[in-house]
Amino acid sequence: MSLLVIENLSKIYKSKKKTIHALDNISLEVEKGDFVTITGPSGSGKTTLLLTLAGMIKPSSGKISFNDFHIEKASDRRLAGYRKKNVGFVMQSFALIPYLTALQNVMVPLSLVNSRSSIQKSKAKKVLEMVGLEDRIYHLPKELSAGQQQRVAIARALINNPSVIFADEPTGNLDPALSGEILKTFKEINSNQKITILMVTHSPQAAEYGNKNIRLCDGKLI
């Protein structure tokens, strides 16, 4: 059975003058262990798709199931629980908490599942080591380079052993050399830990890291 099953998914934004079909009748299946890259022009609905799959945006119609969990009709609590336990997020803007050190940022998801402080610390250190940041763990985000910040974000996404990682242009703010490193890290995570990855990207080279590529245009899958 597929990990993620998406059926006829639509998201319509209505404003006074026009209605925007951010997602238009999308159907898709993602298998466990897939590395799906999502490309498409700006405004085509890539971010909307990831956020809807993560339960952050309620779809206008259609169904999404993660294993047997029906995302489109789950409560806020259940959705928070789903993200906390099964989902890791990596964003173009890193989205680190500015007043927490690298280590503390990585510990936050563990604190949400109430694990003990000492366990949080040792796990977070291990994951930061894995992404090559063991000598920067007490730095605040503003004291880190863009590439280092993105690696903290990846560490944070990995810390709860998620089944799936959603990455929205994770290399969009990085130079080509750093991008290559980050992408390699994703590839390793995907092949070593069998974590499913859905990654939005603008770059054709990045898109080649995936085993599946989908392309969106005006909210439609093409």
């Binding site: 952050m56 806020d76 928070a80 629980g81 336990k85 989902v87 949400l112 944070r156 709860n160």
Partner: peptide, 10 residues
């Protein structure tokens, strides 16, 4: 938003 994204409920 970040906290909600990494699984903090309302």
């Amino acid at each position: 938003g970040t906290l909600r994204l990494i699984g903090a409920p309302k």
